Amino acid sequence: MIVGCPREIKNHEYRVGLTPESARELVAHGHEVLIETQAGAGIDASDAEYSDAGATIVGTAAEVFARAEMVVKVKEPQPDERKMLREGQILYTYLHLAPDPDQTRDLIASGATCIAYETVTGPGGGLPLLKPMSQVAGRMSVQAGASALEKAHGGRGVLLGGVPGVAPGKVAVIGGGVVGFNAAQMAVGLGADVTILDRSPEVLEKLGHYFEARAKTRFSNNANLAECVADADLVIGAVLVPGAAAPKLVTRAMLATMKQGAVMVDVAIDQGGCFETSHATTHDDPIYTVDGIVHYCVANMPGGVARTSTYALNNVTLPHALRIADLGWKEALARDPHLANGLNVWNHQVTHKAVARDLGLDYTAAETALAA
């Protein structure tokens, strides 16, 4: 199979779909790998390293899309990239379609077979291709929030860890999954006063055992959520409904109860955000203020630490890429129902139930695609 990897063009997106090591693995399996020139520059991977791995360097993204049977990326294809997709071509990347009707419409029109990292499941449950980026984003959310809390950035002027004689900042983490757990780890490590909210008793029990007295846990009902948000200096939104738009848990009315200059970091922004006042921002212009509350809603946070993120991502995406290239997408998905859960668009149809439901589109089961 001809596998292509273009340079990412989303604002300040420095990750790359294939590392030189991943390219070498694909070549060793007998596949041809096309890499757009400078695609790896953001992780300090030179064209020469890709060439040494057996890949072919091409001059433009247009050539990658024109020649590749499977395109491997990191972020969702941007409008110019979507125009280059073609009937039957495989697109393997993050998509986050539920809050993005324009992208969904373009992918349906393209006729491409689109496999989304974020909805591939694992044998033990969970979302293994999303997990490493959730770990990165969770940890970065506290760094970003701590910076935004500085007075020069519009924040309250609170140091999360405090100092002797001065109380630490209060952090509320909404959601105790991978993002929330990693955010809480970082906040606890800084010495903050941390509360984690979740609706699962099992998750709360695990968090309680792990953090013991270093972090508090609360059941996430409306009253507890409102109380914790009002009391917090930093609120981390870490809620995920696989494949679906994130629920709006923090309303605009709740902002009036918060401390002026408090910070909200919405890690769920890829799925539309879990704060009513959230809208996606970029690394160029990451924060804005609503009713005196600072919002940080960068949609590709892990792109800021591109080298760590790229290698962590390739660790989990490459095995599936190899199977798709070795077997063809249909056989690879037929053999692995967890990978089949990643199929979001096929033959001009939406094949993920949550995406179809949230966007009001017709749904075609992945099994239909595999039987066709």
Rank of each mutant, 00 (worst) to 15 (best):
L160G: 04
S141T: 03
V166K: 04
K206H: 14
H209P: 04
A144D: 02
S200K: 06
L204P: 02
V166P: 01
I196D: 02
G176L: 06
H209K: 14
A146C: 06
V203D: 05
G189I: 02
A148V: 02
G161F: 12
M140I: 10
A192P: 05
L225G: 09
G162F: 09
A148T: 01
N224G: 10
G161H: 10
K151F: 13
A167D: 11
D193K: 14
G177C: 10
P132K: 05
A226N: 11
G169C: 05
N182R: 06
R139N: 14
L160A: 08
A167H: 11
P164A: 15
A215F: 06
G180Q: 09
I196G: 00
A187T: 06
A144N: 05
R139V: 05
L207C: 05
I174F: 07
I174G: 09
Q143L: 12
A223I: 09
A192R: 08
S200Q: 11
G189C: 02
V179N: 07
H209T: 15
E150M: 14
G161R: 11
P132Q: 10
Q185N: 15
A184T: 13
Q143G: 01
Q135V: 15
R156S: 14
D198S: 07
L159R: 03
S200E: 11
N222D: 12
E212P: 01
F181P: 02
V136C: 09
V171T: 07
G176P: 04
K206A: 14
D193V: 04
A152I: 15
K151C: 00
A167K: 13
V136R: 04
L159A: 09
A148P: 07
N222G: 01
R156D: 03
K151I: 10
A146H: 08
G177F: 10
